[in-house]
Structure formats: C-alpha cells, structure tokens
Nucleic acid binder design. Structure first.
Length: 835
RNA sequence: GCCCGGGUGGCGGAAUGGCAGACGCACAGGACUUAAAAUCCUGGGAAGGAAACUUCGUAUCGGUUCAAGUCCGAUCCCGGGCACCA
C-alpha cells in the first residue's frame, strides 16, 4: 500500500509549479471569493481549530473551482496584537521577532493543509505596507467625522494595561486574559459606529448568515422605540429654562399615569443643580460612593440603592408632584440617564419602591380588561390588581386610572399619549440603541500607531497622508510597569506639527487590532498596491465576499466592525456595495477526547501535526469533515481517523484493481448496467447538493456508498468499461476532499494518457434521466401502519397504484375484508389505506 | 431573568410532515490464512418469539394530522449570547 503522506509534497509542488492556485483575472466574470478568517499568530502553531476552519473551507473552494468558478481564496496573518507584546514583556523577545518566527512556522503548517491559497494576495497586518493603509482608513474616518476623541468612561483591563472595547468585555472580564475590567475616565479615540446603527440592523435581514449570529448582532445593536418625555421641575425659579426639565426615555408611555417618582443616574449633570440644601450632603456622599464602586459590583450585588434629592418635578399628563431620586440602577450611558419610575409595571422600579416605601399605582390590567357600554371597566384577567394583585405586571394590557386614556389598549395609548405630549412640547417618539461607539485606542505598542499629532498651538492634527506610514519604532523597551513603550520612546513621540512646524508630540496610542481586520478582505484582491489601499475598480469586480467561513466568536466584534467599515467606505465613495460578506458560515468547535474544551491546563489538546505527520493531510482533513457535523463540531476521537484511512486505502485498492484490469483487457465491451449508472448519478447529485450546503459529512457518506456499489459491481462482473467510468467519476467527486490522493489516483487511472491536474476537470454533473427508475418500491400502510411493500412501475397512475396495493397478498390479509374508506398516495413514498 | 441553538442506538452522526437510525466507528458471525493482522462478505434500536410476526421506541407530558424526530402548547436538561438598556 502506498504511503499517502508522500503524496502531499509531490502534488503541492506540482500545483505551485503549474500555478494552479492562481486567480486568473481573465475569468473575472466567473469569480468566486471564498474567504476564511485569517490566522492570528499569537501562539506558535496552527491548532486544530484552524484546521477545522481551513480544511473544509478549502474543500468548498476546490468544489467551486471544479464547478467552473474562478476561485479567489486568499490567506494572510492578523499579526498585530497584545499576546505578542505580553510575550515580549515576559521573555524579552521583541514582538516583531516572535511574530515573524510564528508566521514562518504557521506558513509551513498552512502549506501542509494543501489548500489552494492565492499566493500573490498574501498579507500581514503588522507590515508597514499594510498598516500604512490602516492608518489611511483612520484618517479618512477622521476626515468624515467618524473618528473622534473624547473623555469618556472606558473599559480598562488592568492586566493588559489598556483600554478595550465594549465588545471585548465578557462578564466584566477581559475577553483576552479573563482578568477584571475597570471603568476609567480617559481620553480615547472612538469610531462612530452608532451612526450606522439603523443600517447595521436593517441590512441583517438581507444576509445569508446563521440566524444565531444575526440575532446576536440585533441584540447587540439593541434598538428600542419609545418616547422621550419631559418632566418639568416643580421649583425651577433659580435655574435656566433649558435646565428646568428632566428628559426621560421610556418604551412604556402607556404607564405614565403610574409614575410615582423620577430617577436620575448618579452621574447625571442635573443632580448637582436640583439637589436641595438639606439633601446635599447625603446626595454627594452617595454619588461619590457609587462612582467609586466599579460597574462590576454595581451589577453583581444588584441590590438597588438610591437617595432622595429633595427636588420634585411635575407629571406632564396630570401635573402630579413627583419626588426626584438618584439611584444606581439608572444608567447614564443609555437613553437620557433618567427614567420615570412606574413601580406597578416595572420590576426594577417595583423593587426600589418597596425598599424606599414609595407609592405603587396600578394603571394597566391584563388583556381581559374592557370598558362596558357605560364606560365602566370590567376586568376579567386573573392577573389584574383587583383580584390577586400580581404585580409588577409588566405586560401590555388595558389602561385604568389613566384619565381620558383609561380603557385604551397599551399600544394605542402609547401613540395617543405621545401625540398629545408632543402638542404640549413635552414629548416625542424616540429610538434608542444599545450599541455604543467603538473604542479603538489601545495603550500598547504592538499595533498600528494612530496617525495623529498633538500640537500645543494647533491641537489635534492628522498626519498628512503623504507622510504615511507612521512607522512603529523597533527600538523600544518592554517593561512590566504597564506603561506603553511607545509613550516612552522619545524619537517616536517628538515630532513637528505638520501645520505650524513647531515641535509637537505624536499620539502614542495604537489602534485596536480589530481595526486592522475590519478591512483586510478589501486588501486581498489588490494586496501589492503601493499607492492606495486598493483599486476601486478591482474591488468593485471582486467584492463582496461570496462565502465567508470562520468562528462564531466574532459575531459582535469583527463581523460587526467590518460591516461598519464597509458602509463608511461606501459612503466615502470607495465601495459600491453595502455588505462585505453575503454568505457566512461558522464551523463548530472541536472538543478534546473528554468532551471538554481543549486547553493546555486540561491536557486534552490534540495536535494536528502529529496526525498529519503520520497519515498525510488528506486523511486528516477528511476525518475532520466526516466525523462531525461541520457547524456543530464535537469531541475528538482517534478511531475516527483510522476509519478514513481505511476508506481511502479502500479507494486506492479499487483504482489499482480497475486500472490493472483495464490494462489487461483494453477493449472491454461497454455493456450498460442500470444499477451502477444509477448509483453513480445518485452520488453525483447528492455530493453536489451537500457540498453546496457545506454538509461535508453526508457528501462523504454518498461517496462511500458509491465505492461500495462499484465493489459490488466488480464482483457481479458488470462491464469493465462502465466500472472504469464510475471510477473516474468517483475520483473527481473525491478530489475536493482529498486533493493530493485524488491527483495521484487520477494519474494512475490515466496512465500514459495523463496530461493535467484533476482540478482542471469539471466536477461531475448528474443526468436526471439516469435517476429515473422503471420500478419504484412503495410502502403500503393500513391505517398508517406499514404492512407491506409493493413494486410499481414508475409511470403508474394513482388508480393503478391503488389496484396494485389492494391486490397485494399481505394487504388483503391485513384489511380482512373491510372496505377502504380513503387511500392516500404519496409519490415515490407510500400508500396509506384507511379502513 | 431575557434571546438564540440543541436533546435521536454502545459511539460519531443521517432523515423536503411520508418506511427513524443513511454513512461510518465499535461489536458479532463467516470467508481467506498454519495462525494473527490486513482484506472481503454478512448481521446489529429494544423487548417477546423457533420463526412468520407482534409490541415499544427520537428528553418528558399533551395536542394537530390519514401520517410527527420534524408542526403547536407546557415542562425538564445541555450549550451559546445578553444581562439594572427603562
């Protein structure tokens, strides 16, 4: 038996030599952009997760290529990032050096997959040729007012010593290092992703994306429509007119008659102004205390606290005097930083009201509440306050105790009340989003420097595009003090102001690596362009990406950021499409043998290299595709890989056998055999359909069936020519899955006539006629229970099928003389006789 | 708490409302072999039965339907996301 391992190099070299992976611009009309998420060289090795993403994706690319598409499948490295820098602090190895080294190893490993990556589009985000344009992107966003600097509370990871984005905070811990995240007030750079909130939300429905990812993004954007309502301060004599109102945001304007107090966030600017003398000390202490407690504690303790400010405001609907509180459960960074509290119909307000003994006014009853002809409310819902006081009742329903609005259904009341308030200038409809602007400043070295200069005279001055890239200096010192090495690098920091030419200082923050990865798919098709990030025309013909395959962990980060960047570049006139990734698929997660997530500490990490070294890449990648449902993943199993080895050896023997016999009897007759022909076309049809859906495991199952069928026909002495033909189809079907082995088998089959790579051949297409059988087997049910099977001519009419079914021996016995009441016939499936 | 997924043999996993368990692993039996391995063939949801066959069976309970793993309602468990968002 041949050593499959030896085939990897042979065919890889051949593909390289022949330029088989090259994208040919001539065929641009048939382009297919097949993208995988590029690798992050933080660890020194390609791990199983990479393989599980890249190998099946390559099978898909090869399938598309054989289908006649001009496939563009690039690969590169997302090579900036914290881990390299942390490694430098720990070991003294410069991030540039460790990154270069890791990339070298990983490139070798990538080669081992045997994937058809386009060689000329290779990129590394940490190379000046690339980050020059990441900086260009920043400047463009700045120019358009989409990048700005502000003092804001940000998430600060103490261990990483840098600010991180909202999206990078998981359970109040850093997404990367899992240590605590602190809220800090810092001047930071932001991208105005919120300006695109509505489009980012809306266009989600046009995408062929996993529904879960769409749901996550929708959730993250968090649109809610409601009203912004003003509560006028009851004693506003000493304040300016604009300050005399508290604006609250609510989605439940229908509950406004149930408001018993108003709450401000402790950070709210009005707090200071409205607090009365008697309450000043208490309020100040409370504000100080809550601001000091990090968000972490504010969330984990959850117990609501607050204090009375001494001030009152007036209900805009009935003029009722309402006390104003400040409380930690009101958040400054959402809505207006103030809420109207309706304890009877909101859980949080209820909890607070109970604790501080505030009135609870019920104004909504369940949907059973109705006005009778005399305008009296009848209540039929069991949850209504008049029966069992099941409050807080947070659902919508019918209004009670709400003046002229009583009796209205909630949704109607919301519209009506807002309309009336608008007339009085005290309210309007308002949409809020949970999405915050993207914080992109990082106080770290190993990233693209933000191309900004701070000048004492001119203020913030962008680096002129002609001066790009702002190069990251190599000679910096990495220390454990948590201070950005760049800020201590004199030769980097000190510069001249481009405007006034006086000495000025460079911005020392670098860009979040997600900025680098938010546009890399635009760079690939024009990766060697020295003048521009990409040529507009080229991109217009190559983008959007047709199939994007990668991990689900990027749902609210990379995938959202990329959509935003695409839209902003479109609005600047650089792109002519709205969405970067029309079709997206996430591969599942491969777990350790123990069914647990792989981790070094658990000691259950599976190293792909060991298996590839032993079996070659085809067996390994086929196991990854056959052993799991692609989008589910699952636990690793060593036996599974042996199964695929067995299968491929079985195919090899088959090809060996058939090509040997063909050599012996080259003029074998071609005698048609329906069954074998059917098996071949059945396999072709399903492998095509399954590959289109990335259902690799079932596609391989169909190929296995074909192999079994061919073996059977050899035994049955079916025409050698036909077997030979079936075999050739088999190898083509197999080619995207096991490219090296398929090339070898193809060469074996062709013998002296071999001319070119199997990937220059079209993928088999099935012939519908070959799948039409003369006879079909139908199951016959009596009262929905299967009693018999019958063979009917495929062309039989329903009447004929009925006749055959009823005259079947077992059916006669089962019916036992009873008269059929109804006969249901499902084409090609079954007959159900109801008696 | 809320929003998504998911729960099918000993195992990985298949099933446009229409014959549950494709394909494979493991297992068992047979062939080949001095023997073993490899290979090739056959069999395997469970229970009962000599067999034909019968009954049960896709987390649980109920419903719709001639027909439910699939649709609907409730419950339990597992995974993921969000989490004081007014």
């Amino acid at each position: 038996m041949i050593d499959f391992k030896s085939l990897d190099k042979k065919w890889n070299d051949y593909w390289d030599k022949e330029g088989l992976n090259k994208f040919d611009v001539k065929n641009i009309d048939k382009k297919y952009y097949s993208l995988v998420m590029f690798s992050y060289p933080s660890a020194s090795n390609l791990h199983l997760g990479h393989w599980y993403n890249y190998a099946p994706a390559d099978t898909f690319s090869r399938f598309k290529k054989m289908q006649g598409h001009e496939v563009f499948a690039p690969m590169g490295f997302d090579s900036f990032g914290l881990p390299a820098e942390n490694f430098a602090i720990k070991t003294g190895t410069h991030p540039q050096d460790s990154t270069d080294r890791n990339i070298k190893t990983m490139q070798k490993q990538l080669k081992g997959i045997g994937a058809m990556y386009e060689p000329s589009s290779y990129l590394e985000t940490s190379s000046p040729e690339y980050y020059k344009f990441t900086q260009w992107l920043f400047l463009k966003l700045y120019e358009k007012g989409l990048a700005y600097q502000k003092l804001a509370p940000v998430n600060f990871c103490i261990s990483c010593a840098t600010v991180i984005a909202n999206e990078q905070v998981i359970d109040n811990k850093c997404e990367r290092c899992s240590s605590d995240v602190e809220k800090r007030e810092m001047t930071q750079w932001f991208f105005s992703i919120t300006k695109y909130a509505e489009e980012l939300l809306e266009k989600l429905d046009t995408l062929d994306w996993p529904s879960k990812t769409v749901a996550m993004q929708k959730n993250w954007i968090g649109k809610s429509t409601g009203g912004e309502i003003s509560f006028v301060l009851s004693d506003a004599s000493d304040m300016s007119k604009t300050d005399a109102k508290i604006k609250v945001f609510t989605t439940r304007t229908d509950t406004i008659f149930g408001v018993s107090y108003v709450v401000l966030a402790p950070e709210h600017p009005l707090v200071e102004k409205i607090t009365t003398k008697e309450h000043k000390k208490e309020v100040e202490e409370y504000v100080k205390k809550t601001l000091k407690i990090s968000d972490i504690d504010r969330q984990t303790t959850k117990e609501k606290t607050g204090v009375f400010t001494g001030a009152y405001c007036l209900s805009p609907v009935n003029g009722e005097k309402l006390p104003i509180y400040i409380a930690d459960y009101c958040l400054m960074n959402y809505g207006t930083g103030a809420v109207m509290a309706v304890p009877a119909h909101d859980e949080r307000d209820f909890e607070f009201a109970k604790k501080y003994d505030l009135p609870i006014k019920e104004v909504i009853v369940g949907a059973g509440g109705q006005l009778d002809s005399k305008n009296n409310l009848t209540i039929t819902d069991h949850r209504s306050p008049t029966t069992d006081h099941n409050i807080p009742f947070i659902e919508k329903g019918t209004l009670i105790n709400s003046g002229t609005y009583s009796g209205l259904e909630s949704n109607k009341a919301i519209r009506q009340i807002l309309k009336d308030l608008e007339k009085k200038g005290l309210g309007q409809t308002k949409t809020n989003y949970r999405l915050r602007d993207w914080s992109v400043s990082r106080q770290r070295y190993w990233g693209a420097p933000i191309p900004i200069i701070h000048c004492d005279k001119c203020g913030i001055v962008p680096v002129p595009a002609s001066d790009l890239p702002v190069k990251l200096p190599y000679n910096v010192v990495f220390t454990k003090d948590g201070v950005n090495p760049l800020s201590k690098c004199e030769e980097f920091i000190n510069t001249k102001c481009p405007k006034c030419k006086k000495s000025a200082k460079r911005e020392s923050d670098t860009l979040d690596t997600f900025v680098c990865s938010s546009w890399y798919y635009l760079r690939y098709p024009d990766a060697n362009n020295k003048k521009e990030p990409f040529d507009k025309k080229k991109i217009a013909s190559m983008l959007p990406v047709d199939k994007y395959i990668g991990g689900a962990e990027h749902a609210c980060m990379h995938l959202l950021y990329s959509r935003f960047i695409t839209k902003s570049l479109r609005d600047m006139g650089y792109l002519n499409f709205d969405e970067p990734f029309t079709s997206l698929v996430h591969q599942g997660l491969i777990l350790g043998k123990d069914g647990m997530k792989m981790s070094k500490s658990r000691g259950n990490v599976v190293n792909p290299d060991l298996y590839v070294d032993e079996h070659g890449s085809d067996i390994f990648r086929m196991y990854l595709m056959f052993g799991f449902s692609f989008i589910e993943g699952g636990a690793w199993n060593d036996d599974g890989i042996l199964a695929l080895k067995k299968f491929l050896e079985r195919v090899y023997r088959l090809v060996e056998k058939v090509s040997a016999s063909i050599k012996e009897t080259p003029f074998a007759t071609l005698e048609f055999n329906f069954d074998l022909n059917y098996a071949v076309h059945y396999a072709i049809k399903h492998v095509n359909e399954d590959l289109e859906k990335l259902s690799f495991n079932t596609a391989i199952a169909r190929i296995m069936e074909l192999v079994n069928a061919i073996y059977k026909h050899i035994e049955q002495n079916t025409s050698l020519m036909l077997v030979n033909e079936a075999n050739q189809t088999l190898i083509k079907l197999l080619a995207p899955f096991a490219p090296h082995i398929a090339e070898e088998l193809h060469q074996m089959m062709c013998g002296d006539n071999w001319e070119e790579s199997i990937f220059k051949h079209p993928y088999p297409v099935h012939d519908e006629q070959s799948l039409v059988k003369f006879e079909t087997e139908l199951a016959v049910q009596i009262n929905s229970k299967i009693k018999s099977k019958i063979l009917i001519p495929t062309t039989a009419t329903n009447e004929e099928i009925e006749k055959i079914a009823i005259s079947d021996e077992k059916v006669i016995e089962a019916i036992a003389g009873a008269k059929p009441k109804k006969i249901i016939i499902i084409k090609d499936r079954l007959v159900n006789i109801i008696v």
